[in-house]
Design a protein around this nucleic acid. Structure first.
Lengths: 170, 170
DNA sequence: CGCATTTCAGCCCAACTGAGATGC
DNA sequence: CGCATCTCAGTTTGGCTGAAATGC
């Protein structure tokens, strides 16, 4: 490679913003930067979390489902409630539950209150796994790389966005 | 369904945070809330963006690739550079480029400077598509639902996180 | 020679759609 | 009856790995 070809890594997002401005889209450039930055942070966080969870043989979405069940009063919930709480498509819940059943972490039971539905319950093995996985994840959550004020500011801005998007009942 | 069963939608994230505290993980609860909130905002933003792009027959990652090419001096880049700039795996770039070639939006050319490599160049059709799609997306970027100060604060916090994660060359 | 570039086959995961079975 | 719940089959997307082809 020729000299100068190996340029400084320089932030791809800052570079994109510069191009946006150069192209006459300066009014949209800061919004674009905000979106792409958030996408990037999401990617960094998720890959960190998935990396930590790998030894446990679960993904973050599976962890979320297990944690949800563990915290419900009877350690079991109807599929429909799981879908609503995790805000994922019912067919995706079926899919995730299938995998967790395969690994012996949850079980399906008939719902005594509604013959159409099923309950998903977490097994003892699932409970044990959530505990060890949570120990590791809580470590990550506790040391995000932001101080407490910044972390709460971030949460607050997310809430502002969610409210504007109609994701919160004001 | 019995009365009271149809509860207020109440924020699933706030609920999770309550459970975290109730379970003795109060030190990690705010970090958990920050992460899950950001994941949720990412989901909301992406589904909004993908919805806007649907009429154009492209996804956000394809849009990013097209925009990158359009802004490069010769409207073409080596695969390796695309991979570095978009921070995606080389095999994923091959995949995305395949689809774009299929739709006539980009073309592969031999790289005159390096016989091993290929250049991906955007076609006239690709340029036209980026222009119309950008018009719609810039609309979204301009009106995110945050005011300018909040939007820039969000970008700033993302940068702080990225720096802590080693994603920026300090 | 060792190294870089790119593709390819193959895998996993998550999401969605549309159809159907079952029971309220 | 219409409606809700859930599964199932099939498609799309993206991301990754490991091996091979090519040329520096």
């Amino acid at each position: 490679m020729s000299p100068q070809t190996k340029q400084r890594p320089s932030d791809p997002i800052a570079e994109a913003q510069r191009q946006w401005v150069a192209h006459g889209w300066e009014h949209a450039a800061p919004g674009m930067a905000a979106v792409v930055s958030l996408v990037r942070v999401h990617q960094l966080m998720m890959s960190r979390i998935e990396h930590e969870l790998k030894p446990f043989g679960i993904t973050f979405s599976r962890f979320e489902l297990l944690a949800l069940l563990m915290f419900s009063s009877s350690r079991a919930l109807p599929m429909s409630k799981v879908s609503a709480r995790l805000q994922v498509h019912p067919a995706s819940v079926t899919n995730t539950v299938d995998r967790l059943v395969n690994d012996g972490l949850v079980e399906r039971h008939p719902n005594p209150d509604d013959g159409r539905g099923l309950l998903v319950g977490i097994t003892d093995q699932g409970i044990a796994l959530v505990h060890s996985a949570a120990a590791v994840l809580n470590q990550v959550f506790t040391d995000l790389g932001l101080d407490e004020a910044e972390r709460d500011q971030l949460t607050g801005l997310c809430n502002t966005y969610r409210r504007a998007a109609g994701d919160l009942t004001d």
